[in-house]
Design a protein around this nucleic acid. Structure first.
Lengths: 211, 211
DNA sequence: GTCTATACTCTGATAGAC
DNA sequence: GTCTATCAGAGTATAGAC
């Protein structure tokens, strides 16, 4: 393997202009797919946002679905990072609170990514089924075992750990996925995420604090 | 007003066959729109499910959007009923638990409706913005005031009432909207809703029980 | 590597016979 | 009221010049 200038792990072989265009397309695809869904987004729209022609877009990704899949796969790791970071060596309640806070901040920082995944799962996860049943299920099982161990030691109140994880997902992603509803109900002059953080803290503390 | 045989309030004027076909179409539209979204669903698909031809479908609803809107509006009342039923005369914690349980059971009984609304809100609620900012906001404000009064009286622990409502929505609808993910993570042999109900009970009880 | 031009399919919607 | 036939337009994708 001869010396290559910038051997990034996830960069497909090619020129700098190729890497740049792939990045432009993925950014445009994220915007389009998260706003309109897979069926609602069009290649024209994506190409326009990326500043490329439609055939040129299809030179980089052979089909609409290929671009969509590349986008999903490229974002998966970042999306699951907070749960993966749940630390067996930490203080149980503090770890759960840290996890929930990180997930809420991820929703705030990456609402388009949240809506992209939400749309995919809402339609039955036709492109992600294997990931959900494989790596995701394994990750949740691992962390559920950790939570259960903490509960067995009396360091957390006993609740079904998987459903605890679901509720953290549900609440944190709610603020990104149903942003339109949250803002409509709250009205102007609110910062939903800022208000949600202490609430989520209190909720988890009262739920999980050992008696 | 002469005697009419069956003067149903929501039946458009017309023959029995018209009422029947409208119902068939709305049922087919619910199935199609909830599975594939507004853009993904096609008139051919809806017509096929309803057992009608495409032009015949368009005789009953002048456009795809008209059918979609009729569907949304027809379901709104049922969707908001549980929150509307929160009773100022009841015992606070029991009322909240009853509300959450009713909402969870609604998700279980009407998952297609849940996914229909979820898809709409996920895309920014282009067809429901007026409802969200009007009647929904008013309803939530009304019930938030009730919850706040209960908290002021020391009958519920103090939390931001609007975010409490959000968290009930988030958790209960999660099981319908992200059903594919929930089932993939749990694996076979689980009844997600049955497991969620006591968990949700415990969560709300520990969160809201006065000290 | 990127563009113009275009092929082909399927969409939502309409016209008009019955 | 319901059908057959059809339209115009938009969609994804491809061919081939540059």
């Amino acid at each position: 393997m001869p010396a290559s200038p910038t051997p990034k792990a996830d960069a497909k072989p090619g020129t700098r202009i190729q890497a740049r265009n792939r990045a432009l397309i993925l950014e445009a695809a994220l915007a389009a797919f998260s706003e309109r869904g897979f069926d609602g987004a069009t290649l024209s729209d994506i190409a326009g946002r990326a500043g490329l022609s439609k055939p040129n877009l299809l030179y980089y990704f052979p089909s609409k679905e290929a671009a969509y899949l590349a986008l999903l796969e490229g974002l998966l790791d970042a999306w699951l990072a907070p749960l993966r970071d749940l630390d067996p060596g930490g203080e149980p309640l503090a770890e759960v609170l840290r996890y929930a806070r990180a997930k809420l901040r991820l929703s705030r920082a990456m609402p388009r990514e949240s809506r992209l995944f939400a749309g995919e799962v809402l339609r039955g996860a036709p492109h992600l089924r294997a990931v959900l049943e494989g790596p995701l299920r394994a990750l949740v099982a691992d962390k559920a075992a950790l939570l259960l161990a903490w509960m067995d030691e009396g360091r957390l109140a006993r609740v079904p750990p998987t459903h605890l994880v679901f509720s953290v997902w549900a609440i944190t992603q709610h603020y990104a996925d149903f942003d339109a509803q949250v803002r409509a109900v709250l009205g102007p002059g609110h910062d939903p995420y800022a208000e949600a953080e202490p609430f989520l803290d209190a909720l988890l503390t009262r739920l999980l604090r050992p008696l």
